[in-house]
């Protein structure tokens, strides 16, 4: 599975990362090296092995549906890069 510059451009787009041509060239080489290292996993037969997503047995945790203290609107907005009338402001979407 050779990695091409086109793949890297596509992945950068999916990841919402603006990349320069030099970065694409550099990352293509570096990611290809890492993926080549990862390929060693194919030496192991895992046909009958169940995937393990989590080290512990996790189950859904519920709490009582009761109102608990939470952050104020002011606190929540305090780190917003652009805030207006109690909202986060973003560029036009539609």
């Amino acid at each position: 599975m050779a990695l091409s510059e086109k793949d890297v451009q596509y992945v950068a787009k999916l990841a919402r990362l603006e990349v320069t041509d030099q970065e694409v060239a550099k990352y293509t080489q570096q990611l290809a090296n890492i993926l080549e290292y990862v390929e060693q996993l194919n030496k192991l037969d895992t046909a009958n092995v169940e995937p393990l997503t989590h080290p512990l047995d996790v189950k859904n945790v519920f709490r009582e549906d009761k109102v608990q203290p939470s952050l104020t609107q002011q606190e929540v907005l305090s780190n917003g890069p652009e805030v207006q009338s109690g909202h986060f402001r973003v560029p036009k979407i539609m």
Binding site: L41, L44, T46, V49, E50, P51, L52, T53, P55
Partner: peptide
């Protein structure tokens, strides 16, 4: 499947 799922399966072998 080739990367993520494979890694999760080997994760179980390691455990």
């Amino acid at each position: 499947d080739a990367y993520y799922l494979k890694a999760l399966k080997v994760r179980r072998l390691i455990k």
